[in-house]
Amino acid sequence: MKHPGIVIAGRTTLALFGGYFAASSVFVFSDRFLISLGLPRAEAVSFGMMCVFITYLFFILWVFAVRNLWLPFFVFFVLINTAHRLSLHHGHGG
């Protein structure tokens, strides 16, 4: 893991893909949370849509700013895993 090329490739992968799925998971949580508060579906999704790009941007910058990748890796893992379990539990909307 000391070769700079591998480190950069790993960091970029984590930022682009890990960040993407983690942001997507946050989007799903925000949907569920806002709808449980009584917001109409279209409102909840539109709000989540505006936030998801900012979340993704923040995740990317975070991955490239820190020296040690374990924390972002751990956070992304927890977010994605929870969202996955949630969708298994609730299934897709309809």
């Binding site: 989007f27 949907d31 579906r41 909840a44 609730h90 909307g93 309809g94």
Partner: peptide, 8 residues
Amino acid sequence: AGIEAVYK
């Protein structure tokens, strides 16, 4: 994903 969680 965020849409499909609550819409078909």
